[in-house]
């Protein structure tokens, strides 16, 4: 089942065409990787999907519903979870409270002036933390966690509103190589369990080739390749503009 479908997506900044006529789709339970050189338009593409940027033209549909022109917070309410390239969590709160925030918002309970927030949706929050393996750190302030752990907290936040689609912008940036594959393996497991469609950008080819079901390649704002990891890896154009000789990564395919 197709969860996200994108077609003719375009965006220009002051005459520079950042994204041109991009089209792809993601199915439930599928991990789709978006790769390409720095400045190829990946972030622009991403920000048009999550509502940060409005496309100049094109169609973005989530389960048949158009997302164009919607605000990020409304897109979230339709079931789109996000993680950021540079982690964004609430650093003055504990790990559990971070998840509780997402739950409070999901249950439209934020306007209360009286009930202590700390006690609300506690069990649900703990259950989510358990799924990403962070339950034992639930009472620590988010601001002092190790980077890899913050990434897992973000994943739990993203899961709080039972999303149909996860958008992950360079989910493993800044992590150690072994943690990277671990995080994406966890993501893949959760996505398959809950039937969530995942779209992610990534520079670590070991992660991409190990975890992506399908890959699309963007160069200078245009899609230049699409296919399975094996196909993309063998594509001479992709090798020339992006992958290089393959000397800087090892990644074996599935």
């Amino acid at each position: 089942m197709t969860v996200l479908s994108v077609s003719n997506l375009s965006k220009a900044f002051g005459g520079v065409k950042a994204v041109q006529d991009v089209a792809f789709s993601v199915a439930a339970g599928e991990l789709l990787a978006l790769i390409g050189p720095n400045g190829a338009g990946k972030s622009t593409c991403f920000n048009m999907l999550n509502g940060q940027l409005r496309p100049d033209s094109g169609i973005v549909n989530l389960l048949g519903r158009s997302l164009v022109g919607m605000k990020p917070r409304d897109i979230w309410r339709l079931g789109v979870g996000r993680t950021f390239q540079i982690t964004a969590t609430f650093n003055s709160m504990t790990v559990r409270e971070n998840i509780q925030m997402a739950l409070l918002s999901h249950h439209n309970a934020l306007m209360s002036l009286w009930k202590p927030a700390n006690a609300m949706y506690r069990d649900e929050a703990m259950a989510l933390l358990d799924r990403v393996g962070m339950a034992d750190q639930s009472e620590r302030p988010c601001g002092i966690l190790a980077y890899g752990d913050i990434k897992r907290v973000e994943l739990a936040i993203a899961l709080a509103n039972q999303p149909k689609l996860l958008l992950m912008d360079e989910p493993t940036a800044g992590m150690a190589p072994n943690e990277r594959v671990g995080l994406m393996a966890l993501t893949a497991k959760l996505a398959r369990q809950d039937n969530i469609a995942v779209l992610f950008t990534e520079h670590d080819m070991d992660v991409v080739f190990a975890q992506a079901d399908r890959i699309i390649v963007l160069n200078r704002g245009k899609l230049i390749a699409e296919g399975s990891p094996v196909e993309v890896r063998a594509n001479p154009e992709v090798q020339a503009v992006y992958l290089g000789s393959g000397a800087t990564y090892a990644g074996e395919g599935h």
Partner: peptide, 10 residues
Amino acid sequence: DSALRADAIG
């Protein structure tokens, strides 16, 4: 703490 994250959770 993070307007970006707050917006992203509605």
